[in-house]
Design a protein around this nucleic acid. Structure first.
Length: 198
DNA sequence: CCATTAAAGTTGC
DNA sequence: GCAACTTTAATGG
């Protein structure tokens, strides 16, 4: 978790519940809150001109949402949408910065979180700029599994749908499905009950 | 439990 | 990448 929930609550934060599909903030909106996920999954996404969805990132328990924008005061460059019922703690901008004044050591935690996000962007841009669709999918899988304790083959159940994997890599679902099936033939992944194990 | 429908996954073109 | 098709999950009797 980025910041201990007790700190956030004592600084005046409140917990809000969201249903699947609820918008947490819109592309273009001004950031007024620091958000941190207590429970659930959230996607950060954009839509291109053709209406195709690009998912920048899917984030979950303990992670903060769009915190970088609070520091630079620019409008959100993406939507944040709940993918399942979520509990999210929100702290308004002023209280957030007051809290940082009182507990300056929290800057280190935020710095680490921002660095993790930046690292994710570096890695994903590299694999997503490949012409080869299987390298793009592998990029996501490798990144996700890197943080897991168990590195044994097929020990990690991919928590995303094929559509989400496609949107994360700028591919269309059909291509993602074909690539994943090919990876199954090559024994890179295992598919059981439609779930992907890597 | 079953029927209905929505969502996700699949396949041929 | 579209469209048709199959399978699974969700919803409401």
């Amino acid at each position: 978790m980025v910041i201990n929930e007790k700190f956030l609550l004592s600084a005046g934060a409140e917990v809000k519940e969201y249903n699947s599909g609820d918008i947490i903030f819109h592309d273009g909106a001004t950031p007024h809150y620091y958000y941190q996920i207590i429970k659930g999954k959230v996607k950060l996404n954009n839509y291109n001109k053709e209406g195709k969805e690009l998912i920048q990132k899917i984030i979950t328990e303990g992670e903060s949402i769009g915190e970088s924008l609070l520091f630079i005061g620019k409008p959100y460059p993406m939507d944040a949408v709940a993918l399942e019922p979520c509990s999210i703690i929100k702290l308004c901008r002023n209280n957030f910065f007051s809290m940082l004044n009182v507990y300056p050591q929290l800057y280190l935690d935020l710095c680490k979180e921002l660095s993790d996000c930046l690292y994710y962007q570096y890695i994903m841009l590299q694999s997503n700029s490949s012409q080869n669709p299987s390298e793009r999918i592998m990029g996501v899988l490798d990144y996700l599994k890197a943080s897991k304790k168990d590195q044994a083959p097929f020990s990690f159940k991919i928590p995303f749908t094929r559509q989400q994997l496609a949107s994360l890599t700028g591919l269309c679902v059909e291509t993602a499905i074909r690539v994943i099936k090919d990876m199954e033939r090559k024994k890179v992944v295992m598919i059981k009950d439609r779930k992907i194990y890597f």
